[in-house]
Write a protein that binds this DNA or RNA. Sequence first.
DNA 1: AAGCGGAGCAACCGCGTAAGT
DNA 2: AACTTACGCGGTTGCTCCGCT
Length: 289
Amino acid sequence: MGRQPCCDKVGLKKGPWTAEEDKKLINFIVTNGQCCWRAVPKLAGLLRCGKSCRLRWTNYLRPDLKRGLLSEYEEKMVIDLHAQLGNRWSKIASHLPGRTDNEIKNHWNTHIKKKLRKMGIDPQTHKPLSTIEQPQQHQLEQNQQCSLTEAEEEDKIKDSAETSLQSTITDDKEEDKSMTCTMEIINNEFCIDEVPLIEPNEILVPTSSSSTSSSSPSNSSDSSKFLEDLKFPDFDLPCGFWDEDFMSNWEFLLSDDSTQHDTKLAVDHGHTSSLSQCSGMVLDQDFWT
DNA sequence: AAGCGGAGCAACCGCGTAAGT
DNA sequence: AACTTACGCGGTTGCTCCGCT
């Protein structure tokens, strides 16, 4: 079956996002919520494909994102979850509020891999490097892959991941057995037993798309006029939804002074904290409607 | 000061699949 | 049931920054 490209690539912009584009995307999503990514660029007045918009929003502009390096605890969680889930970054990310799959993937590839190797642990199998012979290692990888592809196992693993972070990994499954030694080694370094539980209500619920918003334009042909009316600071925000710190952060991003904007700047200049604070909040879906 | 190389990270690409018709 | 469409995911790329020579 032929698959059409996600968007007409001709004339679409690629590469780093500008402050102006961020502004447009934020304005649009704050007002309309996340829905129909394919339509977002057109309605928001962006020369990007929907995919690019979604990525920019989920990986960078979302208000509930934490920025900055992963804490030791988060890092430990990533290692733990990776041992159980493999390279399923989005699943791993779902256990780390405010972190994106992309961020975790990058952190894994640039930091954690090295760290584990330094500790003598194979990052793929989570077994000590010295004890693994090549053929065995290969089989281990295959076994892990195999077991992870089964839906039944996945549910078990998911449940396990949610609980084992605070306790020990059950050893009633072969793959768990194979990880035991790894975990022992890691535990020496990270002491996961002391980390607090993550409560379900601490898991952020990213804004849902049920919000074909009531405030959305009556039809798309009015979208350009509609967008003119979007001025972020004028939005009625639920009381206490975003603290002043956070608002100033986004205002920073949206301000006209940020033409040279590289959102990294915001992070580098101490705006991280407000973003991080947001991660503790559960987004109210009503807000988006 | 300039050049080089590695590290880090944002963004892109292509595939799998759920949802819709 | 067959097909289409859009979304989400994971792998990869390429740009920027920074430290070293």
